[in-house]
Protein backbone atom coordinates (compact mmCIF):
# COMPACT_ATOMS: atom_id res chain seq x y z
CA UNK A 1 0.00 0.00 0.00
CA UNK A 2 2.59 2.57 1.11
CA UNK A 3 6.24 2.05 0.31
CA UNK A 4 8.84 4.38 1.73
CA UNK A 5 12.49 4.18 0.69
CA UNK A 6 15.37 6.08 2.34
CA UNK A 7 13.14 8.99 3.24
CA UNK A 8 15.23 11.92 4.50
CA UNK A 9 14.31 15.44 5.53
CA UNK A 10 16.69 18.23 6.40
CA UNK A 11 15.57 21.53 7.94
CA UNK A 12 18.58 23.64 6.99
CA UNK A 13 21.40 21.61 8.61
CA UNK A 14 19.22 19.72 11.03
CA UNK A 15 18.36 16.21 9.96
CA UNK A 16 14.80 15.57 11.20
CA UNK A 17 14.26 12.29 9.39
CA UNK A 18 17.19 10.11 8.47
CA UNK A 19 16.83 7.45 5.75
CA UNK A 20 13.59 5.85 6.92
CA UNK A 21 12.40 2.86 4.93
CA UNK A 22 9.21 0.95 5.63
CA UNK A 23 6.32 -0.76 3.97
CA UNK A 24 2.80 -0.37 5.22
CA UNK A 25 0.41 -3.07 4.11
CA UNK A 26 -3.26 -2.71 3.36
CA UNK A 27 -5.54 -2.96 6.37
CA UNK A 28 -2.79 -2.48 8.88
CA UNK A 29 -2.83 -0.14 11.87
CA UNK A 30 0.71 1.13 12.23
CA UNK A 31 1.77 3.14 15.23
CA UNK A 32 4.71 5.50 14.93
CA UNK A 33 6.07 5.66 18.41
CA UNK A 34 8.81 7.93 19.64
CA UNK A 35 9.72 10.63 22.10
CA UNK A 36 8.90 14.26 21.31
CA UNK A 37 11.01 15.63 18.49
CA UNK A 38 11.86 12.20 17.11
CA UNK A 39 10.64 13.00 13.60
CA UNK A 40 7.17 11.46 13.71
CA UNK A 41 5.29 14.53 12.51
CA UNK A 42 7.84 15.24 9.78
CA UNK A 43 7.53 11.67 8.51
CA UNK A 44 3.73 11.87 8.43
CA UNK A 45 3.83 15.26 6.71
CA UNK A 46 6.00 13.83 3.98
CA UNK A 47 3.64 10.88 3.56
CA UNK A 48 0.72 13.26 3.05
CA UNK A 49 2.61 15.35 0.51
CA UNK A 50 2.63 18.46 2.70
CA UNK A 51 6.41 18.48 3.00
CA UNK A 52 8.77 17.61 0.20
CA UNK A 53 11.40 15.04 1.23
CA UNK A 54 15.05 16.12 0.88
CA UNK A 55 15.67 12.71 -0.63
CA UNK A 56 14.09 9.28 -0.82
CA UNK A 57 10.96 7.99 -2.48
CA UNK A 58 7.36 7.48 -1.45
CA UNK A 59 5.07 5.17 -3.36
CA UNK A 60 1.38 4.82 -2.60
CA UNK A 61 -0.54 2.16 -4.52
CA UNK A 62 1.99 2.27 -7.39
CA UNK A 63 1.59 6.06 -7.55
CA UNK A 64 4.78 8.05 -7.18
CA UNK A 65 5.35 11.19 -5.14
CA UNK A 66 5.63 14.00 -6.25
CA UNK A 67 4.36 13.36 -9.82
CA UNK A 68 0.98 11.98 -8.72
CA UNK A 69 0.73 14.06 -5.58
CA UNK A 70 -2.87 15.12 -6.19
CA UNK A 71 -4.01 11.54 -6.76
CA UNK A 72 -2.15 10.43 -3.64
CA UNK A 73 -3.71 13.24 -1.62
CA UNK A 74 -7.15 12.06 -2.64
CA UNK A 75 -6.34 8.55 -1.35
CA UNK A 76 -5.25 9.85 2.03
CA UNK A 77 -7.24 11.37 4.86
CA UNK A 78 -5.03 13.35 7.20
CA UNK A 79 -5.58 14.76 10.65
CA UNK A 80 -2.75 17.10 11.66
CA UNK A 81 -1.73 17.45 15.26
CA UNK A 82 -4.24 19.45 17.36
CA UNK A 83 -6.68 19.54 14.41
CA UNK A 84 -6.19 23.05 12.97
CA UNK A 85 -9.56 23.85 11.37
CA UNK A 86 -11.15 27.15 10.37
CA UNK A 87 -12.26 28.63 13.66
CA UNK A 88 -14.87 31.00 12.35
CA UNK A 89 -16.89 28.36 10.50
CA UNK A 90 -19.73 26.23 11.81
CA UNK A 91 -19.01 22.51 12.00
CA UNK A 92 -21.62 21.76 9.35
CA UNK A 93 -20.38 24.48 6.99
CA UNK A 94 -16.82 23.34 7.45
CA UNK A 95 -17.54 19.68 6.75
CA UNK A 96 -19.69 20.65 3.78
CA UNK A 97 -16.81 22.73 2.41
CA UNK A 98 -14.39 19.83 2.88
CA UNK A 99 -16.80 17.51 1.09
CA UNK A 100 -16.97 19.90 -1.87
CA UNK A 101 -13.18 20.21 -2.04
CA UNK A 102 -12.84 16.45 -1.91
CA UNK A 103 -15.04 16.27 -4.95
CA UNK A 104 -18.41 15.17 -3.54
CA UNK A 105 -20.37 17.52 -5.77
CA UNK A 106 -23.81 15.91 -5.57
CA UNK A 107 -25.90 17.54 -2.86
CA UNK A 108 -27.71 14.37 -1.74
CA UNK A 109 -24.51 12.33 -1.50
CA UNK A 110 -22.85 15.10 0.44
CA UNK A 111 -25.70 15.28 2.90
CA UNK A 112 -25.71 11.49 3.42
CA UNK A 113 -21.98 11.48 3.93
CA UNK A 114 -22.16 14.29 6.49
CA UNK A 115 -24.96 12.50 8.32
CA UNK A 116 -23.00 9.23 8.49
CA UNK A 117 -19.80 10.91 9.63
CA UNK A 118 -21.53 13.00 12.26
CA UNK A 119 -22.95 9.80 13.72
CA UNK A 120 -19.68 7.90 13.52
CA UNK A 121 -17.70 10.70 15.15
CA UNK A 122 -20.44 11.77 17.58
CA UNK A 123 -20.87 15.26 16.14
CA UNK A 124 -24.64 15.27 15.65
CA UNK A 125 -25.33 17.59 18.57
CA UNK A 126 -22.74 20.21 17.64
CA UNK A 127 -23.14 20.58 13.86
CA UNK A 128 -24.49 24.12 14.33
CA UNK A 129 -21.72 25.35 16.64
CA UNK A 130 -18.72 27.46 15.55
CA UNK A 131 -15.51 25.42 15.57
CA UNK A 132 -13.88 28.01 17.83
CA UNK A 133 -16.37 27.12 20.62
CA UNK A 134 -15.62 23.39 20.58
CA UNK A 135 -13.66 21.66 23.31
CA UNK A 136 -10.42 20.03 22.34
CA UNK A 137 -11.94 16.56 22.18
CA UNK A 138 -14.81 17.69 19.97
CA UNK A 139 -12.42 19.58 17.70
CA UNK A 140 -10.37 16.41 17.39
CA UNK A 141 -13.51 14.50 16.39
CA UNK A 142 -14.43 17.16 13.84
CA UNK A 143 -10.90 16.78 12.49
CA UNK A 144 -11.39 13.04 12.29
CA UNK A 145 -14.59 13.58 10.29
CA UNK A 146 -12.61 15.90 8.01
CA UNK A 147 -10.00 13.19 7.47
CA UNK A 148 -12.58 10.52 6.69
CA UNK A 149 -14.72 12.68 4.44
CA UNK A 150 -13.87 11.08 1.11
CA UNK A 151 -13.86 7.59 2.64
CA UNK A 152 -10.11 7.36 1.97
CA UNK A 153 -8.22 4.07 1.86
CA UNK A 154 -5.47 5.44 4.07
CA UNK A 155 -5.86 7.47 7.22
CA UNK A 156 -2.91 9.34 8.67
CA UNK A 157 -3.44 10.72 12.16
CA UNK A 158 -0.86 12.81 13.97
CA UNK A 159 -1.14 12.35 17.73
CA UNK A 160 -4.90 11.99 17.61
CA UNK A 161 -5.26 11.66 21.38
CA UNK A 162 -2.80 14.25 22.64
CA UNK A 163 -4.28 16.66 25.15
CA UNK A 164 -7.53 14.76 25.60
CA UNK A 165 -8.97 13.53 28.86
CA UNK A 166 -9.08 9.76 29.55
CA UNK A 167 -12.71 9.37 28.42
CA UNK A 168 -12.06 11.16 25.15
CA UNK A 169 -8.91 9.13 24.57
CA UNK A 170 -10.92 5.92 24.87
CA UNK A 171 -13.55 7.30 22.48
CA UNK A 172 -11.01 8.29 19.84
CA UNK A 173 -9.24 4.94 20.19
CA UNK A 174 -12.54 3.13 19.71
CA UNK A 175 -13.22 5.12 16.56
CA UNK A 176 -9.74 4.34 15.26
CA UNK A 177 -10.20 0.64 15.94
CA UNK A 178 -13.61 0.64 14.29
CA UNK A 179 -12.29 2.30 11.13
CA UNK A 180 -9.13 0.23 11.22
CA UNK A 181 -11.07 -2.91 10.35
CA UNK A 182 -11.36 -1.76 6.74
CA UNK A 183 -8.73 0.96 6.33
CA UNK A 184 -5.01 1.35 6.52
CA UNK A 185 -4.17 3.62 9.42
CA UNK A 186 -0.88 5.24 10.32
CA UNK A 187 -0.84 7.21 13.51
CA UNK A 188 1.80 8.71 15.71
CA UNK A 189 1.91 8.84 19.47
CA UNK A 190 4.40 9.17 22.25
CA UNK A 191 2.28 7.14 24.61
CA UNK A 192 3.38 3.54 24.71
CA UNK A 193 0.24 1.96 26.13
CA UNK A 194 -1.79 3.61 23.39
CA UNK A 195 0.28 2.08 20.62
CA UNK A 196 0.12 -1.26 22.41
CA UNK A 197 -3.66 -1.08 22.74
CA UNK A 198 -4.50 -0.03 19.18
CA UNK A 199 -1.76 -1.08 16.75
CA UNK A 200 -1.05 -4.24 14.83
CA UNK A 201 2.44 -3.04 14.21
CA UNK A 202 4.69 -0.53 15.92
CA UNK A 203 7.59 1.39 14.46
CA UNK A 204 9.71 3.10 17.05
CA UNK A 205 11.41 6.26 15.82
CA UNK A 206 14.21 8.04 17.55
CA UNK A 207 16.41 10.88 16.29
CA UNK A 208 14.90 10.53 12.84
CA UNK A 209 15.65 6.84 12.46
CA UNK A 210 13.48 3.76 12.72
CA UNK A 211 15.03 1.84 15.60
CA UNK A 212 12.47 -0.96 15.70
CA UNK A 213 9.70 -1.99 13.33
CA UNK A 214 7.73 -5.13 14.09
CA UNK A 215 4.35 -6.47 15.14
CA UNK A 216 3.37 -5.63 18.67
CA UNK A 217 3.64 -9.30 19.70
CA UNK A 218 7.08 -9.82 18.17
CA UNK A 219 8.39 -6.67 19.75
CA UNK A 220 7.35 -7.97 23.14
CA UNK A 221 9.12 -11.26 22.50
CA UNK A 222 12.30 -9.52 21.45
CA UNK A 223 13.49 -8.71 24.93
CA UNK A 224 13.89 -11.46 27.41
CA UNK A 225 10.78 -11.46 29.54
CA UNK A 226 11.54 -9.49 32.61
CA UNK A 227 8.47 -10.12 34.61
CA UNK A 228 7.14 -8.62 37.75
CA UNK A 229 4.77 -10.55 40.00
CA UNK A 230 2.64 -8.74 42.53
CA UNK A 231 1.24 -10.69 45.41
CA UNK A 232 -0.94 -9.62 48.34
CA UNK A 233 -1.64 -11.82 51.32
CA UNK A 234 -4.09 -11.58 54.20
CA UNK A 235 -3.24 -12.78 57.67
CA UNK A 236 0.47 -13.11 56.99
CA UNK A 237 3.40 -11.95 59.03
CA UNK A 238 5.60 -9.78 56.78
CA UNK A 239 8.92 -11.22 58.01
CA UNK A 240 7.79 -14.82 57.74
CA UNK A 241 6.22 -14.33 54.35
CA UNK A 242 9.34 -12.68 53.01
CA UNK A 243 11.47 -15.55 54.23
CA UNK A 244 9.09 -18.11 52.79
CA UNK A 245 8.93 -16.50 49.35
CA UNK A 246 12.70 -16.32 49.19
CA UNK A 247 12.95 -20.07 49.64
CA UNK A 248 11.08 -20.75 46.40
CA UNK A 249 13.93 -20.03 44.04
CA UNK A 250 17.28 -18.32 44.39
CA UNK A 251 16.71 -16.28 41.20
CA UNK A 252 13.76 -14.45 42.72
CA UNK A 253 14.18 -10.97 44.05
CA UNK A 254 11.48 -10.34 46.65
CA UNK A 255 10.73 -6.90 48.10
CA UNK A 256 8.14 -5.87 50.63
CA UNK A 257 6.03 -2.96 49.36
CA UNK A 258 3.28 -0.78 50.82
CA UNK A 259 0.12 -2.86 50.94
CA UNK A 260 -2.64 -2.03 48.47
CA UNK A 261 -5.27 -2.33 51.19
CA UNK A 262 -5.25 -2.32 54.96
CA UNK A 263 -4.42 -5.58 56.79
CA UNK A 264 -2.64 -6.91 53.74
CA UNK A 265 0.98 -7.73 53.14
CA UNK A 266 2.16 -7.03 49.61
CA UNK A 267 5.30 -8.06 47.78
CA UNK A 268 6.87 -7.44 44.42
CA UNK A 269 8.75 -10.37 43.04
CA UNK A 270 11.09 -9.88 40.10
CA UNK A 271 12.50 -12.74 38.12
CA UNK A 272 14.79 -12.90 35.17
CA UNK A 273 14.42 -15.62 32.57
CA UNK A 274 11.19 -16.73 31.01
CA UNK A 275 10.16 -19.21 33.69
CA UNK A 276 6.79 -18.47 35.28
CA UNK A 277 6.95 -18.81 39.06
CA UNK A 278 3.32 -18.16 39.82
CA UNK A 279 2.37 -21.78 40.39
CA UNK A 280 5.36 -22.35 42.67
CA UNK A 281 4.37 -19.33 44.70
CA UNK A 282 0.79 -20.53 44.91
CA UNK A 283 1.78 -24.00 46.08
CA UNK A 284 4.09 -22.56 48.70
CA UNK A 285 1.43 -20.24 50.10
CA UNK A 286 -1.12 -23.06 50.07
CA UNK A 287 0.91 -24.84 52.74
CA UNK A 288 0.26 -21.95 55.14
CA UNK A 289 -3.06 -20.54 56.39
CA UNK A 290 -2.58 -17.20 54.60
CA UNK A 291 -5.04 -16.12 51.99
CA UNK A 292 -3.93 -14.95 48.57
CA UNK A 293 -5.95 -11.94 47.52
CA UNK A 294 -3.87 -10.96 44.53
CA UNK A 295 -1.38 -12.78 42.38
CA UNK A 296 -0.67 -11.03 39.11
CA UNK A 297 2.11 -10.94 36.57
CA UNK A 298 2.98 -7.79 34.65
CA UNK A 299 5.06 -7.81 31.54
CA UNK A 300 7.29 -4.83 31.07
CA UNK A 301 8.68 -5.89 27.75
CA UNK A 302 7.54 -2.97 25.57
CA UNK A 303 8.39 -0.29 28.02
CA UNK A 304 11.85 -1.75 28.36
CA UNK A 305 12.44 -1.82 24.62
CA UNK A 306 11.19 1.70 24.26
CA UNK A 307 13.43 3.02 26.97
CA UNK A 308 16.47 1.15 25.73
CA UNK A 309 16.02 2.25 22.15
CA UNK A 310 15.34 5.88 22.88
CA UNK A 311 17.58 6.41 25.84
CA UNK A 312 20.21 8.69 24.29
CA UNK A 313 17.82 11.62 24.01
CA UNK A 314 16.50 11.39 27.55
Amino acid sequence: MIEVQNLTKYYKDFCAVNRISMTIRKGEILGLLGPNGAGKTTTLRMLTGYLRPSSGTIKVNELHMPEDVLKIKSLIGYLPESAPLYHNMLVYDYLDYVARIKGISDKETRYDRLLRLSELCGLSAIMDKPIADLSKGLKQRAGLAHAMMSDPEILILDEPTSGLDPNQIVEIRDIIKRIGKEKTIVFSTHILSEAEATCDRIAIINNGRVVADDTTLNLKKRVQENSLIRISLRGADPEKALALLKTIDSRLEVTLVDPVEENLVSFEIRSSGDQDFRSDIYLKIKETDWIILQLAKESQALEKIFRELTREVA
Partner: peptide
Protein backbone atom coordinates in the same frame (compact mmCIF):
# COMPACT_ATOMS: atom_id res chain seq x y z
CA UNK B 1 -0.62 31.00 11.72
CA UNK B 2 -3.58 28.86 12.79
CA UNK B 3 -2.17 25.78 11.05
CA UNK B 4 -5.17 25.21 8.80
CA UNK B 5 -2.74 25.72 5.91
CA UNK B 6 -1.64 22.14 6.56
CA UNK B 7 -5.19 20.78 6.36
CA UNK B 8 -5.78 22.77 3.19
CA UNK B 9 -2.61 21.62 1.44
CA UNK B 10 -3.19 17.96 2.28
CA UNK B 11 -6.56 17.98 0.56
CA UNK B 12 -6.58 17.10 -3.12
CA UNK B 13 -6.22 20.65 -4.46
CA UNK B 14 -3.35 22.10 -6.45
Amino acid sequence: NVGSYETLLTMPVS
